[in-house]
Design a binder for these strands. Structure first.
Length: 239
DNA sequence: AAGAAGGACAACCGCCCGAGG
DNA sequence: TCCTCGGGCGGTTGTCCTTCT
């Protein structure tokens, strides 16, 4: 036997919400809160709607702290980087964007970011030549505090040898030991990945010179993103 | 000017999980 | 320990609006 439905779907209103319904729901919640029970809320509020529908309407549209308008470049960067780390965990991703809902983030990803990235980096595209950057210090103030300025693009095959990865990590470890913590707001953001390639951004403030990075893979980027703010200087090697 | 196509986003569906009995 | 239920989530669909032809 299947599970009982949460409401009588045949007798509740569906589809777009009217202004009157919005007003009923808003005023009820502002006065009484949700009471921790969405299923009984519509009846108490005088709404002929499914409780889940009420919850969705409130969380995605009526909530007072919802941010309207287009996503900023910084928000897009955050979404991309977290998507790489977490996959389609929209609620978690949205929790890092003040005023954005999981539905907003999901829609934005599906309608804008995914297509944009596919257009910019079609699968099987030959990677551009590797570019050498020099990094004196890499810090992750927070992945949400990227400057967005002076952005440099890197592209690297995922098949990067594990030995190189180890060398990079070793170099970083050594510098951790030798030089202690450093600060900057460098951020790595990976934008697209497939079974055979990865690509991304490294961003840092325009006044940070002598940055150097040569190669990376998904694991390395994930590690970087997960690194606490006290990140020691990184010495990378040229290819 | 009108119809088609595409984009944006609101809303729904159904599954999963945890709490509580 | 099992069962039921509600909340939460991700995937998908529906609808409206805009742009293109």
């Amino acid at each position: 036997m299947g599970r009982a439905p949460c409401c009588d779907k045949a007798n509740v209103k569906r589809g777009p919400w009217s202004l009157e319904e919005d007003q009923l729901l808003r005023s009820y919640i502002e006065e009484h809160g949700t009471g921790g029970n969405w299923i009984s809320l519509p009846r108490k509020a005088g709404l002929n709607r499914c409780g889940k529908s009420c919850r969705l309407r409130w969380l995605n549209y009526l909530r007072p702290d919802i941010k309207r308008g287009g996503f900023t470049e910084e928000e897009a960067d955050v979404i991309c980087s977290l998507y790489i780390q977490l996959g389609s965990r929209w609620s978690i991703i949205a929790s890092h964007l003040r005023g954005r809902t999981d539905n907003d983030v999901k829609n934005y990803w599906n309608t804008k970011l995914k297509k944009k990235l596919m257009a910019t980096y079609p699968m099987n595209q030959t990677p551009p030549p590797a570019v050498d950057f020099e990094v004196n210090s890499i810090g992750t103030d927070s992945i949400f505090a990227m400057s967005g300025k002076d952005r440099h693009q890197l592209y690297s095959p995922l098949s990067t040898s594990s030995s190189l990865m180890m060398e990079q990590r070793d170099a970083r470890s050594k510098n951790n030991e030798q030089e202690g913590s450093a600060s900057s707001s460098t951020v790595a953001t990976v934008y697209e990945s497939s079974s055979s390639s990865a690509m991304g951004y490294l961003s840092w403030p325009a006044d940070e010179d002598d940055m150097f990075l040569t190669d990376f893979d998904m694991g390395w980027i994930s590690e970087l993103l997960a690194t606490p703010r006290e990140v020691a200087p990184l010495l990378a090697r040229s290819i």
